[in-house]
Design a binder for these strands. Structure first.
Lengths: 351, 351
DNA sequence: CTGCGGGTTGACAGCGCTGTCAAACGGGGG
DNA sequence: CCCCCGTTTGACAGCGCTGTCAACCCGCAG
C-alpha cells in the first residue's frame, strides 16, 4: 500500500533521481515534459505523497498554516460546554482553502495573557515552523504577536485588524458601515427612539459598531441619548439584562440594536418575558448571523458576517503561489469582504 | 531569541551531548538527577522547544493527533455559511487535551465517499504520520477507514461507534438510554400520544434514539404508532415540515421528541406558526443541547451530549503515556460518558 | 571542428531530531 | 586488587526530503 512509499520508490519506478522527482513535485522550472510525465505517472501508480515532516525539515516551506486560538476563550467555552461558532466558521474557511492549496491546518492554543507570551510564541514557531498563521480578533492587533511573527519571518493574516494597518495580510469587513446600515434600517422603519447594547469596549468591533450606530442617528437628525446605550459583554445574559434595564426606563426605546446576536437573542427573550410583542412593540436587531439567529421566534434581523470567506481569503493570501504573483505592496495585502444585511422577522414598524 | 534554538544549543549550554538532552526531554530512564537538572535549566534559559518535524521524522512518535473531518459535510456547511457546532465542541475537547499532553492537533478533510478513499487515506497517513486519529460519527464505523488505520499501525479513537466494538479506542454515550429517558420524561408529564421525528436511518444514532423512544413507550404500556414516527434529515426545515404533518393528523400528538435539536427547533417554530402554545398544547423535546436550544422560546428540553468531554477522553486515550500504563485489554479501551437530561420550558403537562 | 552557454539532470550534504550501539564509569564479589 | 555487570553517557547513522553545486547534454557561433 501507499504506507511507506518514499521519494526513492518513486524515483526508482520512474528511473530518475530523487532530485528530479522533487523538482516535478515542487513545480520547478527547467524540467523536460518527458521527465515530468514519467514522474507523475509513477507518483500516481504508487499513490505517493510527500512526507510533511521531511519536507518542512529539509526545506524552507512547511505547508502548515496555524490558526492561533485564544486559550482563555477556549477554556471558557470548555467550562460552559458550548461550541464556538465564530471559530468553527473560521476553520471551515481555512480548511477549504488548505485543501485547495494542499496545505495543512494546525490549531494551536495561545495564552495571550501569559507573561511569557513572547517566548512561548517564538518557541512554538520554532517547533512547528508554520508557513503562515491566521490571527483573529481581538488578537489580530496584538503588538507582541505581530512583532514575534515579524522577527520569525512567518507570514500572517489578520482577520479584522484595526491598528498597524501596514503589517501582514489584512482581511477586513466594514463593521462601522454595517452597524450604520442596520441602524438606518431601523430608522427607516419609523423608529425614533433607538437603543444600543454595545459589546465590551476592549473589542474594537464593539467600538466600531457603536460608532456606526451613532453615525446613523446623527445622519438622520436624531440625538444620541447616552441613557439608551448600554455596555454588555457579548453574552445572552447581558442582552437579557440590558433589555430589562431599557424597558424599565420612563421613555422606552422602540428598537434595540445589539452588538452581537447572542445579546440580541437575550433581548428578544427579555421582550417576550415583559410581554412585548416583537416587532410590534419592540424591534430587535443583532450582528453576526449566528445559527441561532435563524431559529429564534421571530427570526433575528442581523448582519451576516462572512467569517468563513474571510478565513478563506486569509489562507489564500498566505499561500506563496499567489503571494508571489502579486506585488508586495502593502495595499494589495488588504482585502475587504462584503457583509449582508439580513432582514428577518424581529424588526418592523410599530404596530 | 528562541527562534532557531536547537538541541545542539541546549547541549552546548548544559555541557552534555545532544543525546542526553534528548533523553531528558523524552523522560527516558537511567538519567542522573544532576544531568536532568542541568539540561532542564538550559532548556528553560534558552526557551527551547523541540522541532516537531525533526522529531516525527527521526522517531516513531510524531505528537500529532488528527481530527478527521467529513469533507462532504464541510462543503455543505461552507455553502450554507454556517458553523458546525458538533465539530467545534469536539475540537475544543481535543485542544484541551492536546495542550495537556503537549500534542499537536491537525485537522484533515476526508472525502469518505471517494472511490480512492483507501489510497487517499494511507497516503495522508504516510505524509503526516500522526500518532493517533479521532473519528466521528457516522464515520467511526467506516470499515475501510478502520482497516487502513490498522494497516498503518496508527492508533485511533472512535466517537460513538456502533459496530466492531473490539477495534480501537471507543468513546460512547448511551444514546438509546438517553432517548428512553427523555421519552419517559414526556410520559411522566402525562402525555400518551407521543410522536418522534427521527434522523436519517443511515446514522446509527438515529436508530438508537428511535429505539429508545419506542422502548419507553412499551415500558409504559403505550402502543408504538407508526404514523407518529417520521423521518427527517436533522435539519431545522425537516423538523418544521415534520411537525406540520403531525399537526395535520386527525388525532394530534401532544408531545414530540425530535432526534436532534435543530429539528426540535423547527418543530417549535411550526407549533408557534400553527398557533399552538408550547408546552401548553404541545411539548417538544430535542437531543444534543446545541447553543440554540437555550435561546429558543421556550428553551428546549433536550439531552446534553458531552461532545467536548468525549473528545478529550478520546485524545487522552491516544496519548501513549497513559496508554502504556494500562493493560491493552480491549475492554479497557472503551469509555462511556454520562449524558444529562436538560429539562427546560418546552416540555410540560397539557394546559 | 572546437568552444560556449543555456537547459536539464544528478550527487550529495544537511535540516534537527531519535534509535542503536558502544564506551565509560562505578560498585560489589571473588 | 581485579573482574564483571549494571548504570550512565556519548558517537554516529539515519528519517525523507530540499538546496547547492557540479556534470552533462544540446545547438549554435566562432
Amino acid at each position: 500500500m501507499a504506507a511507506g512509499v518514499t521519494i526513492y520508490d518513486v524515483a526508482a519506478r520512474a528511473g530518475v533521481s530523487i532530485k528530479s522527482v522533487s523538482r516535478v513535485l515542487n513545480g520547478e522550472a527547467n524540467v523536460s515534459p518527458a521527465l515530468r510525465e514519467s514522474v507523475n505517472t509513477a507518483v500516481a501508480e504508487l499513490g505517493y505523497r510527500r512526507n510533511l515532516s521531511a519536507r518542512s525539515l529539509a526545506g524552507s516551506s512547511s505547508s502548515i498554516i496555524i490558526a492561533m486560538v485564544d486559550e482563555a476563550l477556549t477554556i471558557e467555552h470548555w467550562r460552559s460546554g458550548r461550541g464556538n461558532d465564530y471559530l468553527s466558521r473560521l476553520e471551515l474557511g481555512l480548511l477549504m482553502e488548505c485543501r485547495q492549496a494542499d496545505y495543512y491546518l494546525m490549531v494551536e492554543l495561545v495564552d495571550y495573557g501569559a507573561a511569557t507570551l513572547r517566548r512561548d510564541l517564538s518557541a512554538m514557531l520554532a517547533a512547528i515552523r508554520p508557513e503562515g498563521v491566521v490571527l483573529t480578533p481581538p488578537n489580530s492587533d496584538h503588538p507582541v504577536v505581530l512583532d514575534v511573527l515579524d522577527e520569525a519571518g512567518v507570514a500572517y493574516a489578520r482577520i479584522g485588524p484595526e491598528r498597524d494597518l501596514d503589517r501582514g495580510v489584512r482581511i477586513r469587513m466594514d463593521e462601522r458601515q454595517a452597524a450604520e446600515d442596520i441602524t438606518r434600517h431601523l430608522i427607516e422603519l419609523g423608529h425614533r427612539r433607538l437603543a444600543h447594547i454595545a459589546g465590551p469596549s476592549a473589542y474594537s468591533a464593539s467600538r466600531l459598531r457603536r460608532e456606526g450606530f451613532e453615525a446613523a442617528l446623527r445622519k438622520h437628525g436624531l440625538a444620541v441619548d447616552e441613557s439608551l446605550i448600554l455596555e454588555g459583554d457579548f453574552t445572552f445574559q447581558s442582552g437579557l439584562q440590558g433589555v430589562e434595564r431599557l424597558l424599565a426606563l420612563a421613555e422606552r426605546p422602540t428598537a434595540v440594536f445589539a452588538a452581537n446576536d447572542d445579546m440580541a437573542l437575550g433581548a428578544l427573550q427579555g421582550a417576550a418575558a415583559a410581554g412585548l410583542s416583537v416587532p410590534g412593540a419592540l424591534s430587535v436587531a443583532g450582528f453576526d448571523d449566528t445559527p441561532s439567529a435563524l431559529f429564534s421566534t421571530p427570526a433575528l434581523t442581523t448582519i451576516r458576517q462572512p467569517v468563513a470567506e474571510m478565513a478563506a481569503a486569509a489562507a489564500r493570501r498566505l499561500v506563496p503561489t499567489l503571494r508571489g504573483e502579486m506585488p508586495r505592496s502593502s495595499d494589495l495585502n488588504e482585502e475587504t469582504v462584503p457583509y449582508q444585511l439580513m432582514v428577518r422577522g424581529s424588526t418592523g414598524p410599530l404596530a
